[in-house]
């Protein structure tokens, strides 16, 4: 068996590859639903309804997609530069911690200033967190995959300490949660009687900005060049280390903004379960989108739909909602395969 590069990839192939991959995953995961003894078609109908079946379902899916867009963007930007940032989860919590620190009464600004301020401090906190592995990579040649992964655990424990210790809200009946974000810092609701909040608009604007930066600016070109071929980029006069550090700050900042939207939008206070693995799921989102910042929005909607759909399917059909994690993980792998097959053909000899 041999792989040969295709000379030309038609557009229809590029677009249909992720769709076909997801379709194959659904067929494979049917086995798991059948194992649970649930009727297949009804289960998938329940999943679709739970994801997009009503105004409420759509709002909930959008709420869930918001942090996923941001962590997906974080992964997409970093992976373009081949900076393997697997620390989205830690950066997300870092952003949430910063938003809680500044947003619970320490600083009082009118809402039009307070909300951007929270995003800025959150993004700085997340960027600085990723700066550590990035500096270790550029200065001391320390592999960033392991350091970003390990820092996730450190930051979660830090959040755990703060919420069980000094930051514990005395009004919360003993639950480990932070004080509520002040009213000026709360992201406005977009649709009455739903949880849908302004974080979505921020996330979409972030996607568009990242797309512009990545495709239309010198920074974006440098980031992509470093990812494609470091040696060539270096010969072309691109400062490699500077670009990696810059990428790290952008990527960490984006992931941290997901923490801000959750604390200031969805929950309105910090808890230890604001993220059910959004940082890790963001990697799947980025890969599904083919690392395209605008594609990230679509991919995040899909993944968010799967999670919310699986929740309602598990209530209706007795299929464990861990199926959503399986579908996400399998999609990640299958899409990589599909995208590769658009670039290569397999020749059996």
């Amino acid at each position: 068996m041999q792989l040969e590069p295709r000379t030309h990839t038609p557009l229809w192939m590029t677009i249909s590859a992720p769709i076909i991959a997801v379709f194959v995953v659904m067929i494979l995961c049917s086995g798991l639903i059948l194992w649970a003894g649930a009727p297949l078609l009804q289960s998938y109908v329940a999943l679709a309804k739970g994801a997009f079946g009503s105004k409420f379902a759509i709002a909930e899916t959008l709420v869930r997609a918001t942090p996923l867009i941001l962590t997906g963007l974080a992964a997409a930007v970093a992976f373009r530069a081949k900076l393997w940032n697997i620390g989205g989860e830690g950066q997300l919590y870092m952003g949430a911690l910063a938003a809680t620190y500044f947003g619970t009464g320490m600083i009082n600004l009118p809402a039009p200033l307070m909300i951007p301020f929270l995003f800025v401090v959150g993004a700085i906190a997340g960027g600085v967190l990723l700066l550590i592995p990035a500096l270790l990579k550029t200065r001391l040649n320390v592999d960033e995959v392991v350091t970003t992964l390990l820092l996730n655990f450190v930051i979660l424990l830090l959040a755990n300490y703060l919420l069980f210790g000094p930051w514990k809200d005395p009004m919360a009946m003993g639950w480990p949660q932070g004080a509520p974000i002040i009213d000026e810092g709360i992201l406005p609701k977009l649709v009455a009687k739903t949880r849908l909040h302004g974080g979505l608009i921020f996330a979409v604007l972030a996607s568009i900005s990242v797309w512009v930066v990545m495709t239309k600016t010198k920074w974006g070109l440098e980031i992509r060049a470093v990812g494609l071929n470091q040696e060539a980029a270096s010969f072309a006069g691109i400062p490699i280390n500077k670009t990696i550090i810059r990428t790290a700050l952008i990527s960490g900042g984006l992931a941290a903004c997901a923490g801000v939207t959750e604390v200031a939008g969805t929950k309105e206070y910090l808890t230890l379960d604001i993220s059910p693995g959004f940082g890790y799921t963001g990697i799947a989102v980025a890969m599904l989108a083919g690392l395209n910042p605008l594609g990230v929005i679509v991919a995040a909607l899909f993944i968010a739909g799967i999670y919310n759909g699986a929740d309602s399917m598990s209530r209706a059909m007795d299929v464990s909602n861990y199926i959503a994690d399986v579908i996400t993980a399998a999609s990640l792998l299958m899409v990589m395969l599909a995208v590769m097959l658009t670039r290569m053909r397999i020749r059996f000899s």
């Binding site: 990697i283 799947a284 464990s320 861990y322 199926i323 399986v326 996400t328 993980a329 990640l332 792998l333």
Partner: peptide
């Protein structure tokens, strides 16, 4: 792919 295998193996085990 490694992260993908970790996510897949973990979720399949939990499921």
């Amino acid at each position: 792919t490694g992260i993908g295998i970790t996510l897949l193996a973990t979720s399949l085990s939990y499921y």
